[in-house]
Design a protein around this nucleic acid. Sequence first.
DNA 1: ATATCTGCAAAGACTTTGCATGAGA
DNA 2: TCTCATGCAAAGTCTTTGCAGATAT
Lengths: 140, 140
Amino acid sequence: MRGHGRRMTPARHAVLDALGERGEHLTAEEVFRSASRRCPDIGLATVYRTLELMTRLGVASKFDTGDEKARYELAEGPKAKGHHHHLVCTSCRRIVDYKDFIKEETELLRKTEEGLAKKYGFRIDSHLIQFHGLCPDCRK
Amino acid sequence: MRGHGRRMTPARHAVLDALGERGEHLTAEEVFRSASRRCPDIGLATVYRTLELMTRLGVASKFDTGDEKARYELAEGPKAKGHHHHLVCTSCRRIVDYKDFIKEETELLRKTEEGLAKKYGFRIDSHLIQFHGLCPDCRK
DNA sequence: ATATCTGCAAAGACTTTGCATGAGA
DNA sequence: TCTCATGCAAAGTCTTTGCAGATAT
């Protein structure tokens, strides 16, 4: 946070805590509600600004599961213990974090990133993998 | 289209053509502009409704690259010739379709899908892979 | 004939922005 | 001190919905 010329404020602390405490893939609204407990006066706009900042700094990652609401979670690089991918139910929007096959996936992704970077001249920063389908409950 | 109790109308034809003619990953607005040529009276709402329908029927696929605008393209299953994944520039939002490594990726994805389906009880319908980074122009 | 589609306009949902005030370093 | 951050409210985007009229089959 600091070290980028940025200040550590109560609001930012609250947002960070919200991402840390409450599981994963929170919407801005959810972060707002959670952060409001620690910092009652925080505004939704600040939450958005903070999430945007954290995403830009690589502290958080932002993604979309198909319901037009952005989701955020603490960033965990491919090598981190908590690195996972998402399995999304297209009906109830439930999100399952999975780590199965993560090692193979990560290995292939690394190789692919390298190849793409060379071929297309991109500097690749992150990847996104999601599977979509129906969860057990919604299949009924 | 038919066979689901649905009617083939000029508007739907125009949307389908738009997806087919103009490359890939079009926004609703882009589809609308394109479809307007063939069907001048088409409304944006109809475009949205049609894209939603086609996505539900599996004719089109919908995804998001991080700029809050949904994108659509004709669906090409994992086995189809045109199946590809996306490389997205986080700065200018350019999207590169790539097919490199597709075979390995598809193979791993198939395996992963199978494993996830079994473990979590999902019926998996589709997957999404994206790489994000800076394109050559934006790196400068 | 009739259930489905359509365009339009209005509403809705999510996110961003402007601005004066407040507060970290 | 002085730049950066905040809250509020207003504005902006993208998308969905209500409805009366039009249309495929």
